[in-house]
Design a binder for these strands. Sequence first.
DNA 1: CGCTCACTTGATTGTGTTCAAAATGTGTGG
DNA 2: CCACACATTTTGAACACAATCAAGTGAGCG
Lengths: 253, 253
Amino acid sequence: MSISTAPSRFNSKLTSQCQNCSLSALCLPIALADEDINRLDQIIERKRPLKKGEILFHQGQAFDSVFAVRTGTLKTFNITASGEEQITGFYCPSELVGLSGIDNNNYPITAKALETTTVCEIPFSHLENLTSQIPSLKHQLFRVMSRKISDDQQMMVLLGKKNADEKVASFLLNLSNRFKKRGYSATSFRLAMSRGEVGNYLGLAVETVSRVMTRFQKNELIEVDGKEISIINLSEMQKLVGIADDCARIADI
Amino acid sequence: MSISTAPSRFNSKLTSQCQNCSLSALCLPIALADEDINRLDQIIERKRPLKKGEILFHQGQAFDSVFAVRTGTLKTFNITASGEEQITGFYCPSELVGLSGIDNNNYPITAKALETTTVCEIPFSHLENLTSQIPSLKHQLFRVMSRKISDDQQMMVLLGKKNADEKVASFLLNLSNRFKKRGYSATSFRLAMSRGEVGNYLGLAVETVSRVMTRFQKNELIEVDGKEISIINLSEMQKLVGIADDCARIADI
DNA sequence: CGCTCACTTGATTGTGTTCAAAATGTGTGG
DNA sequence: CCACACATTTTGAACACAATCAAGTGAGCG
């Protein structure tokens, strides 16, 4: 469970931090031979932590790397023609950000830290070269990108078809699943993002997010204390987002 | 401009249909040596045409292949828990469908023909093997998937932030761009999908789509004759969706 | 020719937005 | 540590946009 963040080890080329990283099974969920993990490890740069509000990369900036979040949280957003920000995703530890930059060789979105955040920088050209030597790495990369495509499509369903209650419930359950996957509580967690950011992401006004959460609390579905959320009635929440027994991923945003 | 669809050539393993295909520069926009194109060509199966309403693959079905549309149009959709269909995309010639199936080894969506449609089936395991021999093919595949991710994110912006007028205008301009890319008129084209399908895709009711189009026609932005659309005032339409000069892709859904 | 389905148009309703203001929380400098 | 400024969240009231309900029109097809 210990994640090395000591400054002395930034950019360390010592043997396999990846191997010791608690996130290794998730970030690129690779069944790699030790030797291969070492090779992967060598191309990865550990960056100094980003402080809250700091930017990892800018929309339009030349694409070099994808990044794996180690600790903290990022948001990605797009500045629209009218100048407002549209959040396209939140990224928790073990998740990969920047994949949308490959196509045009520049990032189409900005990535910003919501709190103190550390990331592993993975120079994409190195990663791509490495896939020639490690076929299973290539396959995992295809899988990660494919997964992102299906997730985004579920998000489109959410934005296009769901009402405010369903949107907020889906959002909370999605976070819950992501915490659970990393070994944290699925029912009690802290939101790294503001209500405004939640609303922006879900296509709702701040006020609506606040009202929905208050109502959920009144109906004893959740307990809210500022950014701390506890899901009290998980099964009722799941009903709300319309989980079909045979299609659990629908809830997974 | 001639695309061979004669039945006698289905599954033909003769030399390089890909090379002669008018879509070759788009489908996997590859600068491949002739020899490499032949290798790609050999793993591709030309399927018999799908009739309107026929299904290419089902949600939940085991994933084998991605498909390139050669002629016609497909829609992909997701059946939600409540049983309604949410359209996640329309696919025109040269576009690749099925990439979201890689992750879980099954398709998370259904693909259905909107009109008579021919596709090239590309068995993914073969394609993946081929990428080991042709690095530029691998890179193109990463690019295509990356592009899909950015496009979907633009779609999220549309669904989350735009009003009915902007949604419909973005949709029409997006189609316009896609026709243009393939050498067809950017201002005059036929919709393969019904108003209902447009609405479903854009998160709008049928009636709203119809009203917006009627209004656009009254304002002399477009001319509508059933499924035939002509964009009369392209620049005004672009203003409507909020194209920033420095960020043209924003309109590109 | 008659049936069905898709599309259009109108009237009404409702969900979520917007505007406004108060309450709560957070960070900073003295 | 407190006081102050500022941001975030909550709550209330009025409004607006798009959905829904309903009816009518038109096109395609057996």
